[in-house]
Amino acid sequence: MSPNYLLKRLLMIFYTLFVVSLIVFAITQVLPADAAVMMLGEHATPEALDALRQTMGLNAPVWVQYGHWLWALLQGDFGTSLRTGQPIGPAMFSALGRSLLLAFLSIGLMLILAIPLGIIAAIRRGKVADIVVSLISYLGVALPEFVTATVAVLLLADWLKWLPPTGYVSPTEDFFGAIAHLILPVCVISVILIAHVSRMVRSELVDVLHTDYIRAARLKGMSRGTVLRRHALRNALLPTITIVALDVGYLLGGVIVVEEIFAIPGIGRELIVAIQARDLPVIQAGVLIMAATYSIVNFIADMLYAVLDKRIQYD
């Protein structure tokens, strides 16, 4: 990996965040919500509103407001919530921590299940195992999170009473309680990812198994198992890194729904509450943090890929 590639990818993160900040700011500007009205209530006098607008800088031209907002942002100041009057930064980051816990557990579960499923389907291509896996994956990608979540709660929490239906427990306070509360959300988020990734692993591996070098290895007298382990898996699993990283975008969407359904105080729930309350600074901060998470994950994935796959000469 050349320093050029690294630099280019780093610049891309900044560009991404810049574009996202523009979009978010533009959207929140068009929102039919007046921050001053929100803070003082519907019955405030026009004079009071005007005074507040003046102090908040709301009367300045849009690009000046954007400049102020961006400048504060660069200094780590996300602003204050219109709804709670509290600074946004600390609340958002502790919410992000809870969401990331959920996301990482889901990715972990997905990798544990999706990769073996994909491998089995590929090596048993056209056989029963392959058909079963592909049926599971077709069903998996067709069920939105809110459906799986609702059905899972009905089945495992309401009827069987094996797991708590909703809520969040901090793992530092009650570890086993936290696990019990996380099982359902993690499973729900993983379903679509497992379905998608196992299908991608299958098709990558099928492609690799048809290459000349796999045939050459077999014709050198290597057994099927050795060829699979040593020659095929490595090459087939490398692209999975990129696929998983791109799926993180989808995963973050899933996190929003799942946090809402299971009442987990993560960043997704913060965002939904903010969107419903039209709490502009919180929306701005939340979307930006989401986009940053996605960009950073993809940056790491690209670096990992470049390091693991020495073939590709990046410029």
């Binding site: 290459t211 070098y213 050459a216 077999r218 014709l219 007298g221 040593r230 796959d309 020495k310």
Partner: peptide, 20 residues
């Protein structure tokens, strides 16, 4: 295979595993 009969292939750029 490889022991009593072996084979040389057409294109060395595809018959060798790129990651080994």
């Amino acid at each position: 295979r490889g022991q009593r009969i072996s084979m040389v292939f057409q294109d060395p750029s595809t018959s060798l595993n790129p990651t080994l």
